[in-house]
Write a protein that binds this DNA or RNA. Structure first.
Lengths: 199, 199
DNA sequence: AAACATACTTACTTACTAGTAAGTAAGCAA
DNA sequence: TTGCTTACTTACTAGTAAGTAAGTATGTTT
């Protein structure tokens, strides 16, 4: 669902997007600037404006790319061919990777942007809603299938449970930044033991 | 644990704190300025600096007040005299109130500040850790007592479960801002049905 | 060779940021 | 009534924000 890459191998446009994503996850939308990106990439701030005229353009591009990744990921044979329980594990793995990221734990997109939500340009708000809805719908489907074949257990509606799980995951990554990775692992373990029937 | 108050009845110092809290919850630490506060209170920005010399001072004051409220709240007779299950409900009520706040859903302190965590002054980071730890410890105690007397059910360690519940609540308030109050209610209902044994 | 597009840089504007220094009006205390 | 404190305002600094306009080097097309 996400792959950090050696930025220098890409063109400037992509390197900007990569760095914007990193800064967005690390600092939130309001706490990074074109100057931060420009300095890191050793270009002038105006070069960033050339590729992404406004910060709103840059922000929406970041979310849109992530939405594209989600759509691609959930359609991948190595994902669709998994059992529901394995698909859930695959999702948890994505979050696990984030929590152990090289440059400190990153929050997930939703968590990072939801906090700034009221200050975001309307276009970004809309993109974020779409992203979150698609992810929740996908997970709801996985949970429903898992409960149907007996490999997953939970009470209530699949959609409610999916919303709860994703909310917990988003929050858990924020917790990881405040209290370290250990607390994140506790929360994840708690989620798994509840969803997966005792062996 | 928190009570919005008619700001105008307080002195400037308190009104600044109230407004800073509101802005912090609504916009995050990096997206509000002394100007916002000054304009609203119809004073000059320098007046804010008079009471809280730096933004770090203001930020820590907000968290510290909230920590004081928590300590007071959890020691209140009307809270200590409740059963564990009722104490849990009381906590959920606090979050419920937030989600239905007059001026749009507010996030909880932890959620609002965790997102900006890496950009916060060290003093604020430390205060936030303390706040989060005390709240988690308190809830862990409630959960442990509730499981012991059979009024609450969950698997795993009380501390892990407490961390998970609070994480979910913090995240749920952010969800409320993005997707509206309905989704928040789903998540809360999910939490309650899992923790409280079926009637 | 001329025209054009790409990918920038230089130089700028406007607006806002936190923060400070000096001054001032009002109230209280000796 | 003099002096001190409180609670500001006025006027400022230095830095940073997003964004723009005009110029330039490089390469591609015709």
């Amino acid at each position: 669902m996400s792959t950090a890459a050696p930025a220098s191998t890409f063109d400037t446009r992509t390197r900007i997007l990569n760095l914007a994503e990193e800064l967005l996850l690390a600092r939130g939308f309001n706490a990074f600037s074109y100057q931060h990106i420009a300095k890191e990439l050793q270009v002038k701030p105006a070069a960033i404006h050339y590729h992404y005229p406004s910060k709103e353009d840059l922000g929406t591009a970041v979310i849109r790319r992530q939405l594209g990744r989600l759509r691609k990921w959930r359609g991948l044979p190595r994902v669709t061919e998994l059992t529901p329980a394995q698909q859930l594990e695959a999702l948890l793995d994505v979050y696990r990777q984030r929590a152990c990221a090289a440059h400190g734990p990153q929050v997930c997109f939703f968590g990072a942007l939801a906090a700034d939500f009221l200050t975001l340009p309307a276009a970004m708000q809309q993109e974020l809603r779409t992203f979150s809805e698609e992810l929740t719908q996908w997970l709801a489907g996985v949970l429903a299938a898992g409960r149907a074949d007996g490999t997953l257990q939970f009470s209530g509606h699949p959609f409610s449970k999916a919303a709860q799980v994703l909310t917990t995951l988003a929050g858990a990554l924020q917790v990881a930044r405040v209290h370290g990775e250990g607390q994140f692992q506790y929360i994840l373990k708690q989620l798994r033991t509840e969803l997966l029937p005792a062996a």
